[in-house]
Design a protein around this nucleic acid. Sequence first.
DNA 1: CCATGGTTGTAGCGATCGCTACATAGCACC
DNA 2: GGTGCTATGTAGCGATCGCTACAACCATGG
Lengths: 182, 182
Amino acid sequence: MTVRTERREAAIERMADHVLAHGLAGASLRPLAAAAGASDRMLLYYFADKDDVLSATLGRVAARLTAMLDAALAPGLRLPGGPLLQAVWSEMSSPSLAPYMRVWLEVVAGAAHGQQPHRTIAAGILGGFADWIGEHLDAPEPERAGQGALLLATVDGALLLDAAGRRDLAEAAIAASVSARL
Amino acid sequence: MTVRTERREAAIERMADHVLAHGLAGASLRPLAAAAGASDRMLLYYFADKDDVLSATLGRVAARLTAMLDAALAPGLRLPGGPLLQAVWSEMSSPSLAPYMRVWLEVVAGAAHGQQPHRTIAAGILGGFADWIGEHLDAPEPERAGQGALLLATVDGALLLDAAGRRDLAEAAIAASVSARL
DNA sequence: CCATGGTTGTAGCGATCGCTACATAGCACC
DNA sequence: GGTGCTATGTAGCGATCGCTACAACCATGG
């Protein structure tokens, strides 16, 4: 069991790289296996089926993302809405996080059509986002949840505008939101 | 030329229905042709190639969407940010527009990876959105553009949260945004 | 009448998809 | 020294992908 688990783990790591670099579309077994330095035969030895491969890979991508978010803002540190929004956006729109955001969009698009494992993964990642914002948002209790949700929607919305090729609109939206929270 | 153009037009109409019902993923030639009541052979007689098919189909989807938006709010009618946001969101999150939003997410996800025709279509649809909001937003000039972009981002962000299975967060975000625009 | 050009069916190409059957090599344990 | 279990390669299954070659139909105009 040792060899198998160990190589399975290595495969996940390298497949996460591959998915981040090339996207979920076209992430079929043979290219994934090649990226993992294995054969498709072995991929289906390590994993039950393609859904299992994708779940593990996207799980790793999500884990890396939350690690990067935690590295970006010390846990427990709280900021008011405006500065937090600005900090989150500058992270999200940075080249190092852009691949994660592209994959995130693909996962959500899949989840919108109800397909697995996208639904489950999307719920997990979004929950992580929401928790992370909840931990870092400095706001009075009654409007805390609403403010967090709004911040999340604003960032994801700007992300979407950027992905659609209108970074100008995305940045205008963030700027307007920041200045509205004086 | 008449028969061809006419059937091509009918095919576009029915393929738009199909894509709205089943999504872009899995919209391959043979299912599309079946939905259009034709053979894949004929689809490639009416259109140059698959990209051409998709461009025409998504163009029709976009046209229907803008028509529905115009029907929802009389052209020229202006609303302040809060009411406009609420109106747009209640449209977007309604069952009749939900299929359009799902396809919109798929198009954006494709565009984020730079693939055609998604990039072009996404730019067109997003431009349409932005113009539509610009025409209906009642706001003083200096902050007009920023407010419009923010409204667009907020709606698209809420849309994304909803697609990811968290309609509760989406609605909380919209409510918070509306109440912030007192 | 028949030649021509727009229209359509049949059939199939080579590539890729997820997945599996089968054989084999190596190592562990009785 | 068998015996069995883990690990892996080879080969291929049937399905689907986008696309095309070829032949035929049918209407129209000479």
